[in-house]
Design a protein around this nucleic acid. Structure first.
Lengths: 215, 215
DNA sequence: TTTGTTGTTATACGATCTTATAATTTCTCT
DNA sequence: AGAGAAATTATAAGATCGTATAACAACAAA
């Protein structure tokens, strides 16, 4: 049956470069983040993500099975990268507890984190966390890493300045909540306050801590 | 052509009760809330909402046009009802600024509001607010109502106890952010702290306010 | 050069979604 | 009682989605 295509119009398959699963998974994860960033919940779709990554849909299934696995992976990428950015800022500060905490606060309100797009991605994740055990597991781990980092910053400050904090873990949870809440409020309604005012509000919280509000 | 259906099995149209547009809109809005509550973002669908309300899909289009209009309407219902519940609790408290604020805090952590299901609905709304001007407009109005209520509570307290608050509006924004952040954290990870601890953290924030942290 | 593994494309199927349109019933008003 | 308005049902068309499966091609190793 050779030569059946007399017209010579042989259907050509798309060429591709074969890649290590590790690399491909990351590419797909980052494509997923871009899709979610652009279209919110509507961006969570095998087809859209595959197109964004420039591959076919089957590849997503091949590497991740269910799509929720891909989204969870993207969540881990994003979460790790944000916490890393924060801790880099802390590490770059002068090594006193005061400067380190303040660097953490300022970095939290810097354009890298304090960004509507970032919240857009986050909100999608939250929605999934509430309905998917797999996402919930990721979230728990990442939240506790975050709170632990804050706890260390606050604990060091208290030790250095010799004031008392009744329960450092709870204080860290409150401070984290304040940061998240301000982030949320500002992203949903950027005209409600300016980022510098957000920094000031966080500093005021720390001021209250120093004055013994959490003793 | 009469009598073609010899078997007598005439296709009967479903009976229905005609209702005032106002009533129907509300029914559909509440059905939308139940759908979102049950299925998250996946619950935002004309078909599902219509089924939940016990009507056909066309009715949604008829009353709301685009589905985003229905969701925005549902958002208004929910938002109004939550703020109302809070203000009812405040009104039921003894009429001193201290008791009123405390009632506000306690109500915020009561099962009516401090609820994973409620957050699930909220998260869906946030996701839409970030991508839809119509939803954003609703959110702005409702957020400013909320902050105004908090502002009044804090202002009254400060006036009554004669301590200073540099910028009451900003303080109200911070307090609101703390509440929202704690709500968010707890719903995403209920084992991180107990509601009573959340109440305590808010009281501590007020304590800091009294001590002049926001002076 | 050849063979085998597996990353990747291509394609199909069934379900669900949004939107549009026509037919029909309910209710009100005269 | 009858007619008209509009609320509601019914149905269809086209798009998109998730998942499964088979064929193909790139690369490594022999």
């Amino acid at each position: 049956m050779a030569g059946v295509n007399a017209g010579g119009e042989r259907k050509e398959r798309a060429r591709f470069r074969r890649q290590a699963p590790e690399d491909r998974r990351r590419q797909l994860g980052e494509a997923a983040l871009r899709c979610i960033l652009k279209h919110g919940n509507a961006g969570v779709s095998v087809r859209q993500i595959a197109a964004e990554a420039g591959v076919t849909q089957g590849l997503v299934t091949h590497h991740f099975g269910e799509i929720s696995e891909l989204v969870a992976y993207a969540f881990d990428i994003m979460s790790g990268s944000l916490l890393q950015a924060l801790m880099d800022a802390v590490a770059a500060a002068e090594p006193t507890p005061q400067k380190r905490l303040d660097a953490f606060i300022e970095a939290s309100f810097s354009p890298v984190l304090f960004d509507r797009d970032v919240l857009g991605v986050w909100v999608v994740f939250w929605g999934l966390v509430l309905h998917s055990p797999r996402m919930s597991a990721s979230q728990q781990g990442e939240y506790s890493d975050y709170v632990a980092a804050v706890e260390r910053l606050l604990g060091d400050l208290a030790a250095s300045e010799e004031f008392a904090i009744g329960n450092v873990r709870l204080a860290a949870i409150a401070f984290t909540a304040l940061l998240d809440g301000l982030w949320l409020a500002w992203c949903l309604n950027p005209s409600s306050f300016r980022p510098e005012e957000g920094v000031q509000l966080c500093r005021n919280w720390v001021k209250g801590l120093r004055l013994g509000a959490h003793g």
